[in-house]
C-alpha cells in the first residue's frame, strides 16, 4: 500500500515537472508565435529573445547575455539569449530572418555572415533582411608567434621563414571563415605558401602556439595577453585597418609590409527589417541606456572587450565595405 502511495506521488511529481517545463517552453517560444500587429503601439508587451548563432561562452554570446541582463530592466520584460548554433552561424541567422517581425527577436551578427559565408554556403537571408541596431565590439585579428620555441620574433622573420618553408598556422576558422580568407589572401600576396591547421576555439589555437605544436597562429586580444606576459606568445602583425595598441607595444598593420589586406572583426545586434519603425526606435533607446550603464561599461572593461558603440548606419556602412573587400580577397585566393 505504501509503495502505491509513493508511486502515485512520484507520478504526480513527474507530471508536474512536465507541466512546469512545458509552460516554460511555451512562454519561450511565445515570441515566435506572435505576429506583427500594425505598428508597435503596445511594444513592449512580452519577453524578447536574442538569437546568438554561436555557442554559449563565446565573446558575442557573453556580451549579448550581459546586454540582455541590463536591458531587461529598461524593457520591463525578460530577455532570453538562445543559441541557435551550427553551419558557421547561418542556422541562427536563418532563424532570425524567419522570425515574426514583431520586434521581439533580435540577433547577434557579424560582418562575415554577410560578406563571406554566403559565398560558401546556401543561406536564406541577405543584408536587406536585417536592420542593424547597434555595434557590440570590434575585434583586431593578430598573427601570434612563439618567440621561445621558434626564431620568429617579428613579422619580417615570418616572411623570411615563409620564403623557404611552408607556413602552417593555427586558426579557429576554416575555409569559408574570415580568418582563413584574410590570412590566405595576405600570405598569397606575399608569395608565401601557407596552410591552416583548423582548431575548435581560440583557446586551442593559443595552446597549440604556446606549446610549440604550430609555428604561429591567429588570435584576438586580450586572449593571448597572459602568454605574451610570460613570453610564450607574441603578436607580430595585425589585420586591423589601423595599428593596434596593446600593453606590450603597438602592433603594425599589414600595410606596413606592403600587403593590401585588412580585416576588422565586429559583433553587432540586428533585427528584422520588417519590424515597425517605432519598435526599432524603442530598441535603440533601450540600447543607448544599456551602453551608458555603469555595470555594462565596467563589465566590458574587465573582460577586455572594446565596446563598439556604432549606430545603425555606421554598422551598415562597415558591413557594406567589408563585403566589397572580401570579394577581392576571395578572388585573389581562388
Amino acid at each position: 500500500m505504501k509503495s502505491k502511495r509513493v508511486l502515485s506521488a512520484m507520478l504526480v511529481m513527474t507530471i508536474m515537472c512536465y507541466l512546469v517545463s512545458g509552460c516554460g517552453k511555451s512562454e519561450q517560444s511565445g515570441s515566435k508565435d506572435g505576429t506583427a500587429k500594425g505598428g508597435g503601439g503596445n511594444f513592449p508587451a512580452k519577453q524578447a529573445t536574442i538569437i546568438c548563432p554561436w555557442g554559449v561562452g563565446g565573446g558575442a554570446d557573453v556580451i549579448a547575455r550581459k546586454i540582455a541582463q541590463v536591458a531587461e530592466e529598461h524593457l520591463g520584460y525578460p530577455i532570453i539569449v538562445e543559441n541557435h548554433t551550427g553551419a558557421s552561424g547561418t542556422i541562427g541567422m536563418n532563424d532570425a530572418a524567419k522570425a515574426p517581425a514583431d520586434g521581439y527577436t533580435l540577433v547577434t551578427a557579424n560582418g562575415p555572415l554577410f560578406s563571406l559565408t554566403p559565398k560558401f554556403l546556401d543561406v536564406n537571408y541577405e543584408l536587406s533582411d536585417f536592420t542593424f541596431l547597434r555595434g557590440m565590439r570590434t575585434v583586431a585579428l593578430m598573427i601570434i608567434t612563439n618567440p621561445q620555441k621558434t626564431d620568429l620574433k617579428t613579422f619580417d622573420d615570418v616572411i623570411e621563414y615563409g620564403k623557404s618553408e611552408k607556413i602552417k598556422y593555427a586558426t579557429s576558422s576554416g575555409p569559408g571563415g574570415d580568418q582563413y580568407v584574410v590570412a590566405s589572401a595576405a600570405f598569397k600576396s606575399l608569395g608565401i605558401d601557407a596552410e591552416p591547421v583548423v582548431f575548435e576555439s581560440q583557446a586551442e589555437v593559443l595552446n597549440a602556439v604556446v606549446s610549440g605544436q604550430v609555428m604561429m597562429g591567429l588570435a584576438t586580444p586580450p586572449a593571448y595577453y597572459d602568454f605574451e606576459e610570460e613570453g610564450t606568445a607574441k603578436a607580430v602583425a595585425t589585420f586591423y585597418p589601423e595599428p593596434v595598441e596593446t600593453p606590450f607595444g603597438v602592433i603594425e598593420t599589414m600595410k606596413n609590409w606592403g600587403v593590401d589586406v585588412e580585416f576588422a572583426g565586429m559583433d553587432c545586434l540586428a533585427i528584422s527589417s520588417e519590424v515597425p519603425e517605432d519598435v526599432i526606435k524603442k530598441w535603440e533607446e533601450i540600447l543607448t541606456k544599456v551602453y551608458k550603464d555603469e555595470e555594462f561599461i565596467s563589465y566590458m572593461e574587465e573582460m577586455g572587450f572594446p565596446v563598439w558603440d556604432a549606430d545603425s548606419t555606421e554598422v551598415q556602412n562597415f558591413v557594406e565595405k567589408q563585403m566589397d573587400s572580401m570579394d577581392d580577397y576571395v578572388e585573389l585566393i581562388k
Binding site: V56, G57, G58, D61, V62, R65, K66, A203, P222, A223, D226, F227, E230, Y299, E302, M303, G304
Partner: peptide, 13 residues
C-alpha cells in the same frame, strides 16, 4: 566557461 565569463572571470593562466 560561459558561466565563468559571465562572472567576469576569463579562464586561462
Amino acid at each position: 566557461l560561459g558561466a565563468l565569463m559571465l562572472q567576469g572571470m576569463v579562464p586561462g593562466p
